[in-house]
């Protein structure tokens, strides 16, 4: 067993890799990549996929064949009001209470707007949504999001699509220690499997990413690479990593080793 079960709201899962569905070279490549990554959750952008009916339906039919949990998002929303409306439409269309809540503050960094995020989380939780807020490592905002009804938090690794990895490992480590019992998912900014493994080694519960797989030269192979990295990082965390030391300590015991010059015994 490489992956222990964990829970997001009331759903038990074994895969700790959550994949976005945008930017793939083709829908077929998306489907093959999700299979290779072994994801049990995929995110979907409502705005994009429902601009029309027929095409969207064909697309859904294929996504649903994957037999994964859908996590609709509010990508592109800039106010709580906008996000709430989008969320309600998403619930209607996809028939799920789950929602990746994304409210953007700045168009350049796509940094989350924490004020609007808290407000929208409060309202949507009271309407029965199970909110997965895309947030930063700010502990104050995190506490307010939990008070507002979120039971999962998704701090960024780096700005969306930048592939820079964990820009503030110290803050992410602090967040993990501060909320030992809240499911925490690193969402956004992951560029390489090593970034995903790093977050998992810290004890994060899962990784959410899109661009790093979708825009890879071979998305299917990269999906597999991330699957392995997430599993490796999680397993390493469970296995308890050693601490870093100042002094070297030989891995082969030296006590009792003959120190003759073995090459020149004759």
């Amino acid at each position: 067993m490489t992956n222990s079960q964990f829970k997001l709201y009331d759903t038990s899962l074994s895969s700790r890799l959550i994949m976005g569905t945008a930017l793939y070279p083709s829908p077929q490549s998306l489907i093959d990549s999700v299979n290779a990554g072994g994801s049990e959750i995929v995110t979907l952008s409502l705005r994009r996929e429902t601009a029309g009916d027929g095409a969207a339906n064909d697309f859904w039919a294929h996504i649903q064949k994957l037999n994964v949990n859908l996590l609709p998002n509010t990508a592109g929303c800039k106010t709580a009001k906008d996000a709430i409306t989008t969320a309600q439409m998403a619930r209607e269309i996809f028939g799920t209470k789950w929602l990746k809540l994304e409210v953007i503050a700045n168009d350049d960094t796509l940094q989350p707007d924490l004020f609007e995020l808290v407000e929208a989380t409060k309202e949507l939780s009271s309407q029965g949504f199970q909110v997965f807020p895309y947030t930063t490592e700010d502990l104050g905002a995190a506490e307010k999001l939990l008070e507002a009804g979120a039971e999962v938090l998704m701090p960024w690794g780096a700005p969306i699509g930048t592939g820079r990895g964990l820009m503030n490992p110290y803050a992410l480590r602090t967040m993990r220690s501060y909320f030992p019992d809240t499911p925490l998912i690193v969402d956004a900014g992951i560029g390489a499997p090593s970034h995903a493994a790093e977050a998992m080694e810290m004890g994060y519960d899962a990784i959410l990413l899109n661009t790093a797989i979708a825009k890879a030269g071979d998305p299917v192979a990269m999906g597999k690479a991330f699957k392995l990295a997430v599993e490796a990082g999680h397993l390493a965390h469970q296995a308890l990593l050693i601490e870093q030391r100042d002094m070297a300590s030989p891995s082969t015991p030296v006590a009792g080793t003959p120190f003759f010059d073995l090459d020149n015994l004759n």
């Binding site: 829908p27 994009r48 996929e49 601009a51 029309g52 009916d53 027929g54 095409a55 969207a56 697309f59």
Partner: peptide, 17 residues
Amino acid sequence: PDDHYMIGATVIESDDE
């Protein structure tokens, strides 16, 4: 031709016509 330029193009999964 004739100093015209085509600027394109979006790629959107949609049947909006």
